[in-house]
Design a protein around this nucleic acid. Structure first.
Lengths: 121, 121
DNA sequence: TTAAATGCAAACTCTTTGCAAGGAG
DNA sequence: CTCCTTGCAAAGAGTTTGCATTTAA
């Protein structure tokens, strides 16, 4: 049975207020501003559980660390190889291109574009 | 000036003979069959250099470790969440969907589908 | 009351790095 | 003869886990 702890709420608030694509470390740094005694393990545990439940999304591992996403709906990402930031790309339909693979049970689509963003190019 | 060492050649041979999407560990295990004294650090260094040069590709981090790819041409991947294996998906054109983002300098497209493969579903 | 969640520290895995020795060009 | 590359071992980073304690329900 999942419990509504102060820590859990603070972590979800943090990921929403960042509205970024933060790592566990980013979330931790944000949370300790208001809850200075929280443990980093609690941040990891809650982020993993929230991602599992679909309460938050995961972007993937960039620069060595998993990045989480406050948006739950399917969308794609552009990752700038220079400033290391993300830009959201709205989801579009790929099904027509995947009909030859209709034997596969596709549950999730992860599309990441890499290159240089407008400011960095 | 890049040198043609025995180790470098053995590592490239290994990734081609595996023809999989092996991790550095997988490549190491393959290489020590014929070169038992090679160091794992050498495997990591050569894989990183080869990926940098475009001699090999990278698939991304799955199950905690980077997976490399003997194929250099752009293509996509399906990753089975049960058997943890990859299936190659031929590249298809996404440009039409990305015209609203033509300010971005897109250098690489990484598309990973996740779900269950034919055998696992 | 009681089982789930926390905090802490240690452990774990993958990867990188410093340095002396080896080897390709 | 150079200096790039290797092997080794240690370090590093991100993440997970064991366990006693706390706390939500």
């Amino acid at each position: 049975m999942k419990r509504n702890t102060i820590q859990r709420q603070a972590i979800l608030d943090a990921i929403n207020s960042l509205a970024n694509h933060p790592t566990a470390e980013d979330v931790y740094v944000q949370v300790i501003k208001t809850h200075p005694t929280i443990s980093k393990a609690t941040v990891y545990r809650n982020l993993a559980a929230a991602a599992e439940n679909g309460e938050i999304g995961t972007v993937g591992i960039f620069d060595g660390a998993m990045h989480f996403d406050h948006k739950k709906e399917e969308h794609f990402h552009f990752f700038c190889d220079k400033c290391r930031g993300f830009i959201d790309i709205p989801s579009f339909d790929l099904k027509a291109n995947l009909t030859p693979f209709n034997k596969l049970d596709i549950k999730k689509i992860e599309l990441t574009l890499r290159g240089l963003c407008e400011d960095c190019k």
